[in-house]
Amino acid sequence: MDNHGGWMETAFNTRDPVYLQVVRLFKERIVTGRLSAGEAIPSRREIASLLKMNPNTAQRAYKEMEEQGLIVTEGNSPSRITRDEEVLRHIRSELLGEAVRTFIGSIRNMKVPLTEIVELVKGEYEADVTGGRNNGGGDA
C-alpha cells in the first residue's frame, strides 16, 4: 500500500458534490499515471482518513467508481483500478475533452482563427516540456 504517501490533502470545493470530486481525483491520477491499471487502492476508511473526509462520502465515491467501472472489488480483497483498456481510454478522453472544452469556452469570445490557436498551443506545449526538463528554467 505505498499509495499512502501520495495522497495529499485535497481541498474540496463546497458546491460540487464531494463524492464526485473524489471520483474526479481518482480519474486524474489514473490519467496522469499516478495510479496504474490494476493497482490496489486504499480502503474506504483509509481514504476517508487520508483525505480527511466523511467516511459516508468516501463510501459513495467508491460506489460511484464501481458503477462507472473505474474500480473493481473482488470479494474481500482491496479494490483495484480496472485493467479494462477501454474504460481507461474513456477516462482519458473524458478528462481531455473537458480540458479542451474549458479552453475553447474561455477563448470563444476572442474569435481567434484555428490556425493561430494551434500555433499557440504548439508553442506553449513545447515551452512547457523543455521548461519541465530544465526544472522551471527560462523560455525555450
Binding site: A48, S49, K52, P55
Partner: peptide, 11 residues
C-alpha cells in the same frame, strides 16, 4: 479537530 471528524472516531 477536522481530522477527528474524518477518522474512525466518528465512524
Amino acid at each position: 479537530i477536522g481530522e477527528v471528524f474524518s477518522s474512525r472516531l466518528v465512524e
